[in-house]
Computed example of a mutant assay.
Amino acid sequence: MTIAIIGAGLTGASAAAELREQGYDGDIVLVGAEPHAPYERPPLSKDILLGKGTAADAAAKDEGWYADNGVELITGTRVTALDTAARTFEVDGRTISYDDLLIATGATSRHLPMADESGVPVAYLRTVEESEELKQHLGGSLLIVGAGWIGLEVASAARAAGGAVTVVESAPLPLVGAIGEDMARVFADLHREHGVDLHLDTSLTTLEQDEGGTRAVLSDGTEVRPDLVLVAIGAVPDTALAEAAGLEVDHGILVDARLRTSDPHVYAAGDVAHHDHPELGRLRVEHWDTAIKQGQHAARSMLGGEEPYARQPYFFTDQYDLGMEYVGHLGREGYDEIVVRGDHASRVLNAVMISDGTVVAAMHTNDWDATDHLRAWLGRDATDRLRDTSVALADTFEG
């Protein structure tokens, strides 16, 4: 029996490891487009930029793990064709047959045509090479388009390196879609206090090269002269192979609760998977924890597991002296009530977000004992005790 994995990122590596953990002794083929063994992406905008880690530190597995565990690792090449009827794919001049297949092709940076066509120095951040190149420019003048997780983490690293940073964001607050207005203000205040020139409700209207170098004009009239422009406006799932093979695709590869695609022998997980979550409905999650956990779950499903993937999303960020962990999912409806313990001044706080009386998401900043308690509240009806901020979070559970 052969199980093939297309996409040698963290999801693919996690799936391969789980197959062996579960006792699968058949062939495993793991194919990746990048010229590296699988690695974790969070360090690209954190430790590597801050000089606290290297690309080698980001490796998903030790160098010899794949050979030691009988995993054929093929890197630096793309699968050129997938035939789901014949259960074969083409890669590097070979035709490889599979019994079951996992697609874990991830996502690519969303590009900004205005920037790409401007002729000015433009960067994106998705790969080790891009991170190492960006690190060389952090001490200069940086314009960041997009105040999402990548944009803000790079802003933090650049300020630590002594760089001048301007961030432009079209939304009224950074991260507002992910964490809501109340907590988004924490991050807006954080970056402004650290000297970031943050322009919200603002767009980039002009980007050009003139005799003075790069000239950028924002919709609020501000003119910026950056050495480099970083575009950090999100990611696009890499569905090209799946689409060409006739799999159902809609904002990602459509998978059922077990992570199976429209073909019963093909699964998808990680950034590329648009998952039918049993509690949250359709969603696609681009975070480290989901890459690991969905990779592991897909492996178990391919071995006959019937359990749905029901884990709630989790993500984290480190910016300046602030660390944050978040669990749950707000969705388009957001929340109609928020309960905050702690205070904004010290930024040691936790928050529980409630919709129609049910806890849908929660997060903390610098409150490291809170995570397990916050996760335990997900999906529960909020109580008066939870809402009473004079009661410690750990003591809010009744019975």
Rank of each mutant, 00 (worst) to 15 (best):
H344A: 15
H287W: 01
G246I: 06
G246K: 03
G213F: 14
L134S: 06
E337F: 00
Y326P: 01
R347I: 02
I233Y: 08
V71L: 11
D197P: 05
Y309T: 03
E398L: 14
T358H: 02
A362I: 05
G328T: 00
E398Y: 02
A58F: 13
D289W: 04
D210V: 12
P264V: 09
G106I: 07
L30Q: 13
G163Q: 01
D381M: 11
Y267Q: 03
D276Q: 15
D367G: 07
M353S: 10
A232L: 04
E72T: 15
A107T: 02
G7I: 09
Q22W: 04
L134C: 04
G32V: 08
T202Y: 12
E129M: 09
V91D: 13
V120K: 00
A37V: 08
L142E: 07
D220L: 02
I5L: 14
D201F: 00
S97W: 04
V165Q: 10
E133P: 02
M302G: 03
L101R: 11
L254G: 06
L190M: 09
L322C: 12
S203T: 15
A17L: 09
T75Q: 13
L374P: 01
D62P: 12
D372Q: 11
P43G: 00
Y335S: 09
W377M: 14
M1F: 08
T290N: 15
E132G: 03
Y335A: 10
Y39A: 06
A8Y: 10
Y66W: 06
D250R: 10
I96H: 12
V348N: 14
V79L: 02
G195Y: 04
D100T: 15
E153P: 12
A60D: 06
P43Y: 07
L303K: 06
H287K: 01
L198M: 13
L303A: 05
